[in-house]
C-alpha cells in the first residue's frame, strides 16, 4: 500500500494531524480519534442526518466523507456549538420546546439548523421557494423542506420546528 498523505483537521478550533487508514470516515474520526461522541452514527449511509456536522461553515453528512480528505478544513460539531454550561440559542430552544424524545438525532438536527439559518441569511433558495431567483419566505414549509435531511424516528418534528423558528425570529446567534 502506498503511503497515505497526512491531513491536518481543525475540530472546534483544535488541530489534529490525521494519519492512518484512509478508509476512516470523518464521523468515525470525530468519535474515535477525537472522543467527540456528540455526533451520532445513525444509518452510516447519508440517509438520516444524525451525523451532520459543519465543515467550513457548511453542513454535511460526516459519515459519507473520508477524514483524510479534510486536510486544512475546520469542522464544527455539536460540542463546538455549545456545552452544558454554555448552550447555544438553538440548544436552549430545543430544550425549552421539548424538541426531542430519545435525543439521538438531536446533535445532527441542531448542527443542521445552525447551518440552515446561515444559508437563509445568504439568500439560498429551496425547492419550495415560489421563485428560486427571489427572496425566501421564512415560513414553516420552507423550514421543513430545508430540514428534510434530518430524520427523527420519535417524530418530534413539530417541536423541532418551533425551536428553530424561535431562534430565527429572535435573530439570536444560532
Amino acid at each position: 500500500m502506498a503511503q497515505t498523505p497526512a491531513a491536518r483537521i481543525a475540530v472546534n478550533g483544535v488541530s489534529h494531524d490525521y494519519k492512518g487508514d484512509p478508509r476512516r470516515s470523518l464521523l468515525d474520526f470525530l468519535r474515535r480519534d477525537f472522543g467527540l461522541t456528540g455526533t451520532k452514527k445513525g444509518c452510516d449511509h447519508g440517509q438520516c442526518g444524525a451525523c451532520t456536522v459543519m465543515v467550513n461553515g457548511r453542513r454535511i453528512n460526516s459519515c459519507l466523507t473520508l477524514a483524510v480528505m479534510h486536510d486544512g478544513d475546520e469542522v464544527t460539531t455539536i460540542e463546538g456549538l455549545g456545552m452544558p454550561d454554555s448552550l447555544s440559542a438553538l440548544q436552549k430552544a430545543f430544550v425549552s420546546h421539548d424538541g426531542f424524545q430519545c435525543g439521538y438525532c438531536t446533535p445532527g438536527q441542531i448542527c443542521s439548523a445552525a447551518a440552515m439559518i446561515e444559508e437563509i441569511r445568504e439568500g439560498w433558495p429551496s425547492f419550495v421557494s415560489v421563485d428560486v431567483a427571489g427572496h425566501a419566505r421564512l415560513d414553516d414549509e420552507e423550514i421543513r423542506e430545508r430540514m428534510s435531511g434530518n430524520l427523527c424516528r420519535c417524530g418530534a418534528y413539530a417541536n423541532i420546528l418551533a425551536a428553530i423558528k424561535e431562534v430565527m425570529e429572535s435573530g439570536a446567534t444560532s
Binding site: R59, N61, M116, E119, W124, G149
Partner: peptide, 25 residues
C-alpha cells in the same frame, strides 16, 4: 443552485438540483 446567474437565467437547473437529495448531500 444558489448561484445568482443560474437562478436568474436557468431557474430550471436550480429547481431540479434543489429537488434532489438533502442540503447536507
Amino acid at each position: 443552485a444558489a448561484d445568482p446567474q443560474v437562478r436568474q437565467g436557468w431557474p430550471l437547473l436550480s429547481r431540479a438540483i434543489l429537488a434532489g437529495a438533502s442540503p447536507q448531500l
